[in-house]
Amino acid sequence: MMENETKTIEIKDLDFYYGDFQALENVTFDIPENKVTALIGPSGCGKSTFLRTINRMNDLIDGTRVDGDVIVEGDDIYKDEIDVVELRKEVGMVFQEPNPFPKSIYDNIAYGPRAHGITDTEKLDEIVENSLKHAALWDEVDDRLDQSAIGISGGQQQRLCIARALAVDPDILLMDEPTSALDPVATAKIEDLIDDLKEEYTIVIVTHSMQQAARISDYTAFFLMGEVIEHGPTQKIFEKPENQKTEDYITGRFG
């Protein structure tokens, strides 16, 4: 299925627990480089939990436990010697609600690079401009970089958050329902952006909208009750799914 593609992330027998509750069970599949992989499934199926195992954001929740391997670019990220801070530099994340800092547009983008020790103004200017251009936002904000990021529209805020993630130069971008708070026009812009970004980044996106998964992804994984029911090329999942549960879900005959 993916013989010609480089695997960026490999997941092997992954179990995840919130206290006694098992949220993920025996998840095993690979995520190829420079492709968009969509995670779909009903609410509470574990797709967001799974996404957060890839940059260990679940560590922030007390009482969670992980079994199995998540191998990102060759390193098992749950090994003791892994530095979570370094991992998150490589694996950027965009959240469901746009969450810019209450700072200027410029400072939002420069935030990551500054915290990582870049102080040279010219270098920062360059990073800010490149990141905003990559996120298809530069033309809309280049004349008001010093204005508060809280003042721009929701769709612009979300692209700002994408630019902010790009500014620390990750290889992988995780997106947790990035358009669920946006109107259709802003959603279409983000979807176009995702299509452009996959040339340089590996993208994993959780989405509530099967249609969105169909439109933008190359691979789709269908989660149900913490298990991956089916995983494969998006076209195959949406035209001839192998599993009856997948078919029931994508045709809206679920449950």
Binding site: Q211, A214, R215, T234, Q235, F238, E239
Partner: peptide, 9 residues
């Protein structure tokens, strides 16, 4: 045509 119908609504 089938692909476009299935994937692009």
């Amino acid at each position: 045509c089938i692909n476009l119908t299935a994937l692009q609504q």
